[in-house]
Simulated scan of single mutants.
Amino acid sequence: MNPVPHDFTPLGLFLAADPIVKAVMIGLALASIACWAVIIEKSFALGRLRREVRALASASVTPTIIAEGSDDLTAIALRAGLPEWRLGQGVQETDGEYRARLDGAMRKAVLRAVRRTEPGLQILATTGSVAPFVGLFGTVWGIMNSFTGIAASNDTSLAVVAPGIAEALFATAIGLVAAIPAVMAYNRFVGGLTGARQEALGAASDLALRLSRAPRQQVAG
């Protein structure tokens, strides 16, 4: 009697898998969806951040830059620096100390703003490091079940062994599908955010220097 043909499509392998292996596959699929959502969001966020950094680097100290409700890096930096600028240079304060006070206030505000783009990277890092091992667990569990079935049927033919092995290996494949884009995206975003953060802090320092030299009538309250 010929064995019933086994469905080796992804859906067929999933439906035929052990409940624990199915749970592993579903978890990895959900992790992959979450990673792609983060990848899409961070792509837009990083692009927006780079545009704001370029604007900050070329900003001038004028009232039009600090419109109420604006949340770009230039407005954030100036709103942080203007209170210190209005206080003016203290009697016992050197020019360098005065500039450092402005610079510190503006850099802190810019750094806080840049850090708002970082949440979500942990999902990529965790998925990239854990997903292959979760998939391997599903594979090991599936192979154990296959060997148990082989022992029970006392039949070691390829037609009996192959379906269970294929179902088990499919879990590892899903783990790799989830992990590889996550690792690549994490490395790209970390590098991009690190570069943007350094450029933003440098641009904030330059703007602080220009603000420290600005005449009182140039900057509006």
Rank of each mutant, 00 (worst) to 15 (best):
S157Y: 09
E199N: 11
T156I: 12
I123D: 04
A179C: 03
P132L: 02
T172R: 10
G195C: 04
L124Q: 03
P215V: 10
G88I: 12
I143D: 09
G128I: 00
G191S: 09
V4P: 08
A113M: 11
G96I: 13
P19L: 04
N187C: 04
E97H: 13
L209T: 15
A100P: 00
K108V: 13
S58I: 08
I123S: 08
Y186L: 13
R48V: 05
M106Q: 03
A17E: 10
A75S: 15
A109P: 13
G69I: 12
R115I: 06
G47V: 08
G135N: 04
L193A: 03
E97M: 14
G149N: 15
T126F: 08
L102S: 12
F170P: 00
V53N: 03
G221P: 01
F133Q: 00
G12E: 02
G90D: 11
I165H: 07
A45I: 07
F14P: 06
R107V: 15
I76Y: 09
I33W: 05
R107S: 11
L13K: 08
A31V: 01
P181A: 00
D103K: 13
V140F: 04
S43N: 13
L87I: 12
L176I: 11
Y186M: 06
A23E: 03
F133M: 00
L13H: 06
G164H: 05
A200D: 06
M1W: 14
G192C: 07
I39T: 05
R188E: 01
A151D: 15
A131H: 05
V219Y: 06
L193R: 05
T194W: 01
A185G: 04
F189D: 06
P19I: 01
I66W: 15
G135M: 02
E118S: 10
G175K: 01
E199L: 14
A166I: 04
H6E: 09
A113W: 09
E41T: 10
A57I: 05
